[in-house]
C-alpha cells in the first residue's frame, strides 16, 4: 500500500492542542491570521486545508 497523503503543515490559533511530531506547526494569533497563513501555504504547496473543528487546520497533500 502506497502512502500518498501527507500532512504538510499544521496551522493553529490554539498552540496547546498540537505538539511535537515531524510536521511544522504555524501558530497564529487569531482566525484571520490563521486563514491567511493557511491560504498562502496551500497555494504554494498545492495542498488542501482541512479544519479539525477545534481551531486547528491541517494542510494535506492529496
Amino acid at each position: 500500500m502506497e502512502l500518498n497523503k501527507f500532512i504538510l503543515a499544521i496551522i493553529t490559533s490554539e498552540p496547546d492542542k498540537v505538539s511535537g511530531g515531524g510536521t511544522p506547526v504555524f501558530i497564529s494569533r487569531n482566525i484571520e491570521e490563521q486563514d491567511n497563513i493557511a491560504t498562502i501555504l496551500a497555494r504554494v504547496t498545492e495542498g488542501v486545508i482541512h479544519d479539525l473543528g477545534n481551531g486547528v487546520y491541517i494542510l494535506i497533500k492529496h
Partner: peptide, 20 residues
C-alpha cells in the same frame, strides 16, 4: 455541516477555509 461538504446525504470532504 460545519466544514464538511455534503451533496444531499453523501459526505464528500472537509474544507477548512471559509472563503472556499
Amino acid at each position: 455541516e460545519g466544514a464538511n461538504l455534503f451533496v444531499d446525504d453523501i459526505h464528500f470532504m472537509n474544507l477548512g477555509r471559509e472563503q472556499v
